[in-house]
């Protein structure tokens, strides 16, 4: 029986080897072809547009975060911040994110407590510079 098995497997091995040889000998033409120039440039443009859009999105997101943080620092609630961000155009956002000083409130007056603190601070510095002291008896 052993010789029958050996002969049988030899035949199978030969058939398989020939089959692999035949399949391997066939050129795989469908795997490689020249890409037309117009298709390449079209793809580049699309990629470039996508990239520009992505950059704009990233920029707007970052600028929104900067402006949102500034408005939040001023004391506005989340809803108030969102409402303002939604009303701004991309150009507005870019301006405010680039010029955070322009996001201070304009009221034209020094707030009372702030003014008193500043005056107090400046007076103390002035007294220190002139080596004078205030002694309360």
């Amino acid at each position: 029986m052993n010789w029958v098995k050996s002969w049988y497997f030899k035949q199978i091995a030969i058939v398989l080897a020939l089959a692999v040889l035949c399949i391997g000998a066939v050129p795989a033409r469908s795997l490689a072809y020249m890409v037309g120039a117009e298709l390449v440039s079209g793809t580049d443009t699309e990629i470039s547009n996508d990239r520009a859009q992505d950059l704009e999105t990233v920029q707007r997101t970052l600028e929104s975060k900067i402006v949102a943080k500034r408005l939040s620092d001023l004391g506005l609630s989340t809803d108030e911040v969102t409402e303002r961000l939604e009303s701004l155009t991309d150009a507005d956002l870019h301006h405010f994110a680039s010029q955070l000083e322009s996001l201070n409130p304009g009221g034209g007056l020094v707030s009372g407590i702030g003014a008193i603190l500043i005056i107090l601070l400046l007076v103390l510095v002035a007294l220190k510079m002139t080596d004078r002291k205030i002694i309360i008896k």
């Binding site: 408005l71 303002r84 507005d92 996001l103 409130p105 009221g107």
Partner: peptide, 28 residues
């Protein structure tokens, strides 16, 4: 005008002007 800020913010000024039908822009 925002009482808690004791003043007005430029984004609100922009929004008011636009809502009132004007063109408004803030720039350097």
């Amino acid at each position: 005008y925002r009482e808690k800020l004791k003043g007005a913010l430029l984004p609100d000024m922009l929004a008011y002007a636009r809502a009132a039908g004007f063109n408004a822009e803030v720039y350097v």
